[in-house]
Computed example of a mutant assay.
Amino acid sequence: MLMHQVKVLQALASAALEGGRGTNGTAHPQQPPNALKLYEFEGSPFCRRVREVMTTLNLDYEVYPCPKGGKRYRDEMKKLGGRRQFPFLVDENTGTQLYESQDIIHHLFKYYGSTGRTPKKYSHYPKVPALALAGTLANGARGVWVNKKILERKAPEQLLELWGFEASPYTRIVRAELTVLELPFKFHNVAKERWQDQGLAVLRLKPGKYIPLAGGKREHVLKVMGENIQVPYLVDPNTGVKLFESAEIVKYLQKQYGS
């Protein structure tokens, strides 16, 4: 438990270094009919830029983890794009495959943003991602290297599903574990849509029973989770397991897919 609390503090520091990017997003995302596919790894600062924008646009997408030393999806993406460089986006809706985080970000705002233009704060990232890199280091460089115990294993038949948002420290811990275990998953963004959503599930700024924005994405998410929205939330269709709490989710993933 102490080790898990250390992970939480490191993940909090990582989110703070990025100024909270990847927390808030539109309540009415333009979700494409075919799932966006992102080949990436949690500890990459360039991948983090893209994930932050995915939360801003509140888009769901499929993640194919490519940690250093991994083979499962690194080889697959090289066949698709010709080289191992991250992040790598596959958008079957537009027939597009893209490397380079800035190019991917422009693409996402062009096709799935409300105006078709990239906001200024997302249009000119520095070539050296100093803050995001500092965030990776603050997070103990988790989600960078593969767990070598799983190298010869096959991926689960069905994608796991994870609800969260980029800047959530508890979600970050789970994503890091999914990365090192090379477990593909569908990530359901649960961006905060307004000030009433701010804060932890039991300590939101607006007291009382949580009521999501009518017609917003969180209203639909609440139907999945029950009486309250809490992230991370994991569903494993391969085993029927459904879990809240990052510590319990990590324990489950390690036992089911890492031991």
Score class of each variant (00 low, 15 high):
8 V>T: 09
8 V>K: 07
11 A>D: 00
16 A>T: 06
20 G>P: 04
23 T>P: 08
24 N>G: 11
27 A>F: 10
30 Q>L: 15
31 Q>I: 01
41 F>L: 10
42 E>A: 07
42 E>M: 13
44 S>H: 00
55 T>V: 04
55 T>H: 01
59 L>Y: 01
61 Y>I: 00
61 Y>L: 06
65 P>E: 08
69 G>L: 07
69 G>E: 04
72 R>E: 00
75 D>V: 03
78 K>F: 06
88 F>L: 13
91 D>Y: 11
93 N>Y: 09
98 L>F: 12
99 Y>A: 07
100 E>Q: 14
102 Q>W: 12
103 D>W: 08
107 H>W: 03
117 R>F: 11
118 T>E: 08
118 T>Q: 12
121 K>F: 10
126 P>Q: 10
128 V>I: 15
133 L>Q: 14
134 A>H: 03
134 A>G: 09
138 A>W: 00
142 R>W: 02
147 N>K: 06
147 N>Y: 09
149 K>L: 12
150 I>E: 05
153 R>Q: 14
154 K>Q: 15
159 L>H: 14
161 E>C: 08
161 E>W: 08
165 F>K: 03
167 A>H: 09
170 Y>P: 02
173 I>V: 12
180 V>S: 11
185 F>L: 02
185 F>Q: 01
188 H>S: 09
190 V>G: 03
191 A>G: 10
194 R>F: 10
198 Q>E: 14
199 G>A: 01
205 L>R: 15
213 L>G: 04
214 A>I: 05
214 A>Q: 13
220 H>M: 15
222 L>V: 07
225 M>D: 03
230 Q>H: 05
232 P>E: 02
233 Y>L: 15
236 D>I: 01
238 N>K: 05
239 T>C: 05
240 G>A: 09
241 V>A: 14
247 A>Q: 14
253 L>E: 03
